[in-house]
Design a protein around this nucleic acid. Structure first.
Lengths: 254, 254
DNA sequence: CGCTTAATTGAAATGGTTCAATGCCTGTGG
DNA sequence: CCACAGGCATTGAACCATTTCAATTAAGCG
């Protein structure tokens, strides 16, 4: 228990409760030592080996050998899961926000085919897979929660397939922004005036939407010109949500 | 138990053992009344409500209300899971071959956002979700098998994302053909001379690869001209597997 | 046998890429 | 405090992979 591999970079004294905790499955399952909702309640956290980690922005922080036996969850910051192509291109499969598993597949298997890069500085937490499995196997309602997480991830992947296969650059970019803002809102990370910390570079958006960063720049400029949002200094402020949603095309099975 | 909803179309006297049985998870879990490997062995099949169904080619055969409580598995024939877009386009998310769940998500939830169409005539089988869950929840090794199915499905979705986001028409089409043939080979559906029943129309390939059927026609002609395969009369014969694999680009995380 | 669906082919149009040049900002080192 | 390098964003022009449009033939199907 408590396998203390250091995933990468330096350690860090992380504050106990992090932005991701409010929506983190590990927290609601009372399996996280730090993020427990109710510190008085009976907790299973001490039965699950766990550890914290930290990665600087732009660093790759999940490697084959490191996730072999560990299930990582993001506590704060953004990450991106991607694959590299022989020609030097890459495709981002998903952005990972605070309170999310690096990948739901890693809950059940250490086999990994994606790279994960920290977009901003990232605090994460790793759980011993065997311990974790044992804890949820016993409790059906825990299992239902994990199934839900998994289904959501699959649904998001399917939505991306539709975007990449059948929708224009404008629609893809608008969808991505809407999806991210919606998820951030669920985590209470949108401030009352509608602005959000938005660490993505244009090349991230390009890699996620299957476009070039040159074209992303052009589309974003056009969106700004139309007054849909403001985006500068790593802060995004939606100005005309309805128009943005229109640009994303009809909601195709949200 | 045994909820006897008729999913659609007419009933049919299906032969007990079908092409999909050899690789069907329900069969290896001994949960299928018909497809059991070992008829003498102790089986849990009578604990799980189940029924057969049949759908004619080109029919939609999975609707919201119908999968609410049922987990469908294809026994013979091909199906396609897709979503419709407001502009009349559609995107096929996956082809479903004999021995596969309609969608792994349906194992855990009846909420559905895709349509499923029979590509060729399809025999399928439905299992009561509650019964099914109860049976696998108790047995960890069953659960591992289901997790594996789920991970495979997700991995295939991720591969499609990469194809649609970053690869050319040729690469997408070649990848699709290779993937299908590989899966068919695993089911022993490739005859010794290398030919397979291949019920897809060009518009299926187009809808799956995010292209137009016009362009699919051009690429397929070019492939044929180069002698990579023959394809006519719903039969595909790979002639130059190595060259086809080259056209698909490097294997990006198979 | 006629009617609809599927496949083929060519020509024109286009959404997005590629290439290239410029400016900006940030961090770094002298 | 300035010079310089590297990453990031912007803009315009040329290019190209794929779409769109259109016309023709071939293939199922009742």
């Amino acid at each position: 228990m408590m396998p203390q591999q250091q995933l990468s970079c330096r350690t860090f004294d992380a504050p106990a409760v992090m932005p991701g905790c409010s929506t983190c499955p590990l927290s609601s399952l009372e399996l996280c030592v730090e993020g427990r909702r109710n510190r008085e309640s009976e907790s299973h956290a001490q039965n699950v080996g766990q550890n914290t980690g930290f990665a600087l922005a732009r660093r790759v922080f999940s490697r084959q050998e490191e996730v072999r036996d560990l299930v990582p969850v993001i506590c704060s910051g953004w990450a991106a899961a991607y694959v590299n192509l022989p020609n030097g291109n890459r495709q981002i499969l998903s952005f990972i926000l605070p309170g999310e598993f690096l990948s739901a597949s890693l809950i059940f298997s250490g086999a990994q085919y994606v790279w994960v890069e920290a977009v901003s500085d990232v605090h994460y937490r790793t759980f011993d897979r065997t311990d974790f499995m044992r804890e949820i196997a016993g409790r059906p309602q825990s299992f239902a929660l994990i199934a839900e997480v998994w289904i959501k991830e699959k649904r998001r992947a399917d939505r991306l397939i539709v975007d990449l296969g059948r929708r224009t650059a404008e629609e893809r970019i608008a969808s991505l922004l809407i999806d991210l803002v919606d998820r951030l809102r669920a985590r209470d990370l949108v401030s009352p005036d509608g602005s959000v910390e938005f660490p993505l570079r244009q090349h991230h958006i390009a890699d996620a939407t299957g476009l070039t960063s040159v074209h992303v720049s052009k589309v974003l400029s056009e969106f700004r010109r139309r007054g849909l949002f403001e985006l500068s200094e790593r802060v995004l402020t939606i100005k005309d949500a309805a128009a943005l949603r229109r640009s994303a095309g009809e909601p195709h099975s949200r």
